[in-house]
Design a protein around this nucleic acid. Structure first.
Length: 283
DNA sequence: CTAAGGACCTGTCGGC
DNA sequence: TGCCGACAGGTCCTTA
């Protein structure tokens, strides 16, 4: 389900309702996520106030405070949530029946519940100690929408890398937040074949690719993410970016740009979509 | 160090 | 209708 635009959409939606709400209780129904949920979080969450949520890579960071003011000195740490492939984090009315894969609830003073649901359990919910950088965040590359992510940067990182460009841009140590959908979409937009070795691309091509990634992600965030099967933002609405996908999931259909057929390949175990005419393979 | 593959887990869909 | 394999938006870990 979630790539960066879907996570960002979720954070924006939750920030409309969660900040300054008090947690009255946390319940763990199933702790078997990507990593076991630490049951100490139940006690830690008790009676704390929720601050403004942020995002780093595809992780959602929810700071907790010991006082309703939520001033910096009162912060006690953060809950760090990854949605994996099938996770959802939403605020629902008290009493809403649990689904088969609802794993965690935070009951709020308002009566609502913040609920984490994840059928495949590739998601994770971890505690970040105050003032520390979680090991999972320590080695991440720049945010794709930040000024640190430039064509020059990507070109430098690609020197001596024979790896194909699609797998390369999906590596979170190079740049975070480029998942399988938007990798194909960005490469199409930049007219780069997904199998091109990273080191083969010129500085100009890298600049074009970086611009394409930024434009693609921004447009997807604006549309509320992409709903393929089951993505729902925190307010329960689907994302509308699917209607704008150029190549993803369009194998055998006409390329919107040139009219030839969109092709599909497995690259690094993932389905990849491209137009061989618009995205010629240089060497 | 890089690159490639398997692993984790459940649900759904298409073919027979 | 039922069974079985392939596949799904993401990382992490092991092996070469």
């Amino acid at each position: 389900m979630p790539e960066l635009p879907e996570v960002e959409t979720t954070v924006q939606g939750l920030n409309l309702v969660l900040p300054h709400q008090q947690i009255t209780a946390m319940k763990i129904y199933d702790d078997r996520l990507r990593w076991p949920v630490d049951h100490a979080m139940v006690q830690t969450s008790q009676d704390k106030w929720i601050g403004r949520l942020t995002r780093r890579s595809k992780y959602i960071l929810m700071p907790l405070y010991s006082d309703k003011d939520c001033s910096a000195e009162q912060c006690i740490g953060e809950i760090m949530i990854h949605l994996g492939m099938s996770g959802r984090l939403q605020v629902i009315p008290a009493g809403t029946a649990k689904e088969k894969h609802s794993h965690l609830d935070w009951h709020l003073q308002s009566g609502d519940i913040l609920r984490f649901t994840d059928p495949r359990r590739f998601g994770s919910v971890l505690w970040v100690i105050l003032g520390e950088i979680h090991p999972r965040l320590a080695k991440l590359g720049p945010e794709p929408l930040s000024r640190h992510f430039t064509g020059d940067y990507l070109y430098q990182r690609a020197i001596k890398r024979q790896q194909n460009i699609k797998v390369f841009i999906m590596n979170a140590e190079i740049v975070v937040g480029v998942g399988n959908i938007y990798a194909s979409e960005s490469l199409f937009r930049a007219n780069i074949h997904p199998l091109t070795p990273a080191s083969q691309l010129s500085l100009e091509q890298m600049k074009k690719l970086v611009a394409a990634i930024k434009i693609t992600l921004k447009a997807a965030i604006k549309a509320g993410g992409t709903t393929l099967r089951d993505f729902k933002s925190s307010d329960g609405k689907p994302g509308y970016f699917k209607q704008k996908l150029q190549v993803y999931d369009r194998v055998g259909l006409d390329c919107y740009q040139c009219g030839s057929l969109v092709e599909q390949l497995k690259i690094g175990q993932r389905s990849s979509y491209f137009c061989a005419i618009c995205q010629p393979l240089s060497r």
